[in-house]
Design a protein around this nucleic acid. Structure first.
Lengths: 171, 171
DNA sequence: TTGATTGCAAAGCATTTGCATGCTA
DNA sequence: TAGCATGCAAATGCTTTGCAATCAA
């Protein structure tokens, strides 16, 4: 049996978006998409550009910007901002909605989700007759690792932590 | 009895901050603070600059930027971003913490507060051993006025709305 | 008098745009 | 072949910085 492409669904979505918009499939777009999908991190355009550049130095900066915008329109990527005046992109397709905690010491980003918070948000919107399309909740502070460092403890990270995906921005 | 300055407390705080940091009181800073305090809106540096410029055309753009930063440090102003890549400033002293709903049609900003959301946030942070210093919750969508416009109703805004302060950004 | 403050112009930075060339459909 | 895509350089837009002149303490 032929081995299936790990990202075939995402690629099909992109393909569909491309065609629906009367655009064209190109080697650059394919490469950028491939690398974006294989990187489970919050990437700035610059980050992605340097990864792409390693594989194919002929690809230009502008194309990465333009393609990221395309991926966002296609619903494959989502823009996020962490306060350093850069736009980061994260996977959007098949990824649950979540919010972010950003460590101001090390730049680590913790993704979390609270159904209760979401519910209260909708409730508040309803009170004002406001129809929300999307939202953004971010908390800045100090992550557990950086707190430990600050007090110079040697205690090993203890016990069962809640499930969390940790990523790093602020390169 | 002498009439008291409406903003004497804020001015005293600024004065104190100025002195504590070994800085100097100047006419420009006084004017900028005065105008900032008298404007109950979300102001970009450019907005504030043009207001200041009307009173005193000799004040420069840069000074407004620098002073807004100073006001933020002094705890009198708070930076907010609504997604148009500008930094807005709102009053911070003696103003309750709140979050924002931003109408993507007209730029109207609705301030709201939910103790429950705040509590859930702290709870989530606690789960991850994260010590939050501040946070930002924003919802984008369509405000009630713009929804009415969209469906071309002539119904007058009905009934008792929750207390809300409405401001406008995106000038 | 000393050193902070100011305004101007220039520089920064992330991102966008104009345009000639290249390439997909 | 038509016209979208690309890469480069230049342009943007907001914000910061360098610097000489000014001004507060």
């Amino acid at each position: 049996m032929k081995k299936k492409d790990k990202f075939e669904v995402e690629k099909a979505i992109f393909q569909e978006h491309i065609q629906a918009a009367g655009l064209r499939k190109t080697g650059q777009r394919d490469l950028i998409l491939e690398i974006f999908l294989s990187t489970e991190e919050h990437l700035s355009s610059e980050d992605l550009y340097s990864l792409v550049h390693q594989k194919d130095p002929s690809v230009g900066n502008t194309t990465v910007y333009r393609t990221l915008k395309l991926l966002t329109e296609a619903g494959l990527a989502r823009e996020v901002r962490f306060g350093d005046n850069k736009t980061y992109y994260e996977h959007h397709y098949n990824h649950d909605h979540h919010d972010h905690m950003i460590c101001t010491e090390c730049g680590r980003v913790i993704e979390f989700f609270s159904a209760e918070i979401e519910a209260r948000q909708d409730e508040m919107a309803g009170k004002f007759g406001f129809k929300p399309t999307h939202h953004s909740l971010r908390m800045w502070g100090v992550c557990s690792d950086c707190q430990e460092m600050a007090v110079e403890t040697t205690t090993a990270p203890s016990g069962a932590q809640p499930r969390v995906r940790v990523k790093t921005a602020f390169r």
